[in-house]
Nucleic acid binder design. Structure first.
Length: 459
RNA sequence: GUGGGAAUAGCUCAACUGGCAGAGCACCGGACUGUGGCUCCGACGGUUGCGGGUUCGAUUCCCGUUUCCCACCCCA
């Protein structure tokens, strides 16, 4: 049997109804904040992510799905190898040279997107969206990372992203935008019925602050790192910021004494962060300051945040984001401050799984043809009813009536409509309410109204 | 990439120290020829994840492998 590949999965009904519920709530809420949808390709030039996300991040250095298109390197290597082995076998001189860079001319490296922001900023630059002033964009779609799967973590997973980006003159760097995004997220989660969320907020400063902070952090770690856990010793070398993620109890007293980014913010960054907090207080969005919150992508500046939720296991971050004021320039574009976030849709759906049944729309009526030739009549009736905006399921004339009833019940239909010879002659059809058992004969022209008026009060 | 657990019918799970692979639910048919849910009866359903080893005999023990789950790492 051919199975879905590791880390990928099929999302089946009725669970898909829950995904649609989430996505339509997202679209409604985002529209209220004047965000508009953007769709970008699922694969991009590898270089985009290398430069945008950062060569040193785990995402780029070990988790991307990358290939060569067309696969010349592989073809050239195969050719070389075959010639080489044939030469040895035949005892003659082998190929004169190994593979060179020029052999790769005409091919490029492509990557399945591991995140959305780089692609959106690429589109912003490519289409000169700075001419439009402030852009408020959102994107829903699959992302790909080659990680070991576990609860809430897949190799193909789905994100809901939103970005506010524009030239500085559009106010894109204003703390008002940070606060607006955070308030929108709080609204969305509440709307979805997720109430026990927790907003963790931090500022990671600008590039300048980070440089000073990193230097101070390295200096502070130097004398103590030898006594810390193996992971911390590794982090201290590769990415000192991540030491703050450590959960080993013995290391906590040491971490407590380390310098914090909050002590290194310059005056503009400090004021910016302060204003974000003041607006959040003003609109009543609760948050917790966490100056140990660091994010894994190189492009983040200033505001960084994470919404967590219990019942998600170890992967408890349901969404995360922050500001990325230098990203556009890093990709060769004009200055374009921005802030955005990514919601892990898989995790979001997981945290409201129990409501799956309640958002599923059931058929209003099951049309049951009865006897030879009745499929034709039933098809006409079903078409009429569907044209009246009813959800209609349709059976088959070969089903015995008992089987039609069972199928209608299983489908969860509110009504069953019997289409037999008697009904066709009279042009009035037996309509039975499957919940109450009440059955009446209804003239063709009144069917839709009859189904709708008694079906509505149930909802 | 590292560690732990698991894999048996469509689903959820049994099967004693190694001895005929089973149950419930679901599905299909019948009781009931144009009236469902309840009930009763019957039928169907398996390369025990895959490959190897030990054994008279392996779902069971051993080795390998794949996948899933959980955690680390990292992130959404």
């Amino acid at each position: 049997m051919i199975k879905a590949v590791r880390g990928t999965r099929d999302i089946l009904p009725p669970e898909t109804a829950l995904w649609n519920f989430v996505e339509s709530a997202v679209r409604d809420v985002f529209r209220a904040y004047n965000f508009q949808e953007i769709r970008t390709p699922i694969f991009e030039a590898t270089e985009l992510f290398a430069r945008g996300v950062g060569e040193e991040t785990d995402i780029v250095s070990k988790e991307m799905y990358t290939w060569e298109d067309p696969p010349k390197l592989f073809e050239e290597y195969k050719k070389f190898y075959l010639e080489f082995t044939a030469a040895i076998r035949e005892g003659r001189q082998g190929p004169g040279r190994a593979l060179e860079l020029s052999d790769l001319a005409g091919s490029q490296f492509l990557t399945l997107r591991p995140e959305a922001t780089a692609g959106i900023v690429r589109a912003y630059i490519e289409h000169h969206l700075e001419k439009r002033g402030l852009n408020k964009l959102y994107l829903i779609g699959p992302m790909f990372r080659r990680e070991r799967p576990q609860k809430g973590r897949y190799r193909q997973f789905y994100q809901i992203n939103a970005e506010v980006i524009g030239p500085p003159s559009s106010g894109s760097d204003s703390p008002a935008r940070d606060a607006e995004i955070l308030e929108m997220l709080a609204t969305l989660l509440d709307r979805l019925g997720i109430t026990d969320w927790n907003l963790q907020l931090n500022s990671v400063g600008c590039a300048n602050d980070r440089e000073k902070f990193n230097a101070a952090l390295r200096k502070a770690l130097e004398p103590v790192v030898g006594t810390m856990c193996a992971d911390c010793q590794r982090r201290a070398v590769t990415n000192p910021l991540r030491v703050f993620d450590c959960k080993v109890p013995e290391d906590q007293p040491i971490i407590q004494k380390l310098p914090r980014i909050s002590q290194f913010l310059d005056e503009p960054c400090r004021k910016h962060f302060e204003e974000v907090q003041q607006i959040l207080k003003s609109v009543g969005v609760p948050f917790v300051l966490n100056d140990r919150l660091v994010r894994g992508l190189d492009y983040y500046t200033r505001t960084a945040f994470e919404f967590t939720h219990g019942a998600l296991g170890a992967q408890n971050a349901v969404l995360g984001g922050g500001r990325y004021d230098g990203l556009s320039e890093a990709l060769g574009g004009p200055p374009a401050p921005g802030i955005g976030f990514a919601i892990g849709e898989d995790r979001l759906v997981m945290s409201l799984q129990e409501t799956a049944e309640s958002v599923l729309k059931k058929p209003d009526v099951y049309v049951a043809p009865l006897g030879a030739g009745m499929n034709r009549e039933a098809a006409r009736l079903a078409r009429e009813l569907r044209g009246q905006d009813l959800i209609v399921d349709l059976g088959d004339e070969n089903f015995r009536l008992k089987k039609s009833f069972e199928a209608a019940t299983r489908a969860g239909a509110k009504y069953i409509l019997i289409v037999g010879e008697n009904e066709v002659k009279a042009d009035a059809f037996a309509l039975k309410n499957l919940a109450t058992g009440e059955q009446v004969s209804v003239p063709r022209g009144e069917l839709a109204r009859r189904i709708r008026e008694t079906a509505q009060p149930l909802a």
